[in-house]
Design a binder for these strands. Structure first.
Lengths: 124, 124
DNA sequence: ATATGTGGTTACCTCTCGTAACCCAGTTAC
DNA sequence: GTAACTGGGTTACGAGAGGTAACCACATAT
């Protein structure tokens, strides 16, 4: 394994503010990350479409997560039509700026967590 | 807003396995990420030293988090000395491989969540 | 009227997170 | 000795996030 040439700057620990703690407090939750990823990849989505995309999430939890992400200005909720109530969820600019983080997570997951399909890089 | 030139590959949604969901299930927790970051940045640490570095975490939660991270093969627990019980926590290779993810999170946090304290590197 | 689809809410329960207190071993201090 | 301190936790308890199942309101289709 190769040692990284660049070190993380650590002005976090005893100090008053820390980027990792802040970021982890924002998106350090299982479903938040997944919801952001789906919105990032599949553009604006309605509630049920998003629920389908995420997979394995209940209406209640998705509702909670969306409410939280909206409060944190990462997701935008837009009512498109009133008669048959139609809502679209999309990322704000701040939400879209998380793309690099989400991509890193996806790439890492593919490399290190891939199930038995590909054994060429398995570390068991 | 600018469209990203590279798209995320989405073979996640309806499928059986998804790298984001897997990764989020592993490290999608507030303290897990912070603990990994501190171990990454400050090398092997004892329990109380790590607690100090993380800041704001209780013994119980840190204990739980370390136990979980150890079970997930991201953190290594080594008893260094027996006389006065001395323990060192460090990252496994798998844990160290998360550096890119953690770094992205730190970088994003610095760019987008920085409070008003230091404006020399602020982009707001 | 019944069924389907969209966008949720409500009740309830568990699992994680968090606080405060306490325990055990060993080492110095008196 | 006993007390106090350090290192590494555990226990009891409670708040909060995450999860399940059922249900609601509205609209269109049959």
């Amino acid at each position: 394994m190769d040692e990284p040439t660049e070190q993380l700057e650590v002005w976090c620990a005893g100090e008053d503010w820390c980027p990792i703690t802040s970021t982890a407090t924002l998106i350090g939750k299982k479903w938040h990350t997944v919801v952001l990823h789906r919105l990032l990849a599949n553009g604006p989505l309605g509630f049920n479409a998003l629920k389908e995309e995420v997979g394995g999430i209940s209406s209640k939890v998705l509702s909670d997560v969306l409410e939280d992400l909206e409060a944190k200005r990462l997701v935008d909720r837009e009512i498109v039509s009133e008669k048959p109530v139609r809502v679209e969820y999309s990322l704000t600019e701040l939400g879209e700026s998380l793309e690099s983080v989400i991509q890193e997570m996806a790439a890492w997951g593919e490399e290190h967590l891939m199930p038995a399909a590909d054994e060429s890089r398995s570390i068991t």
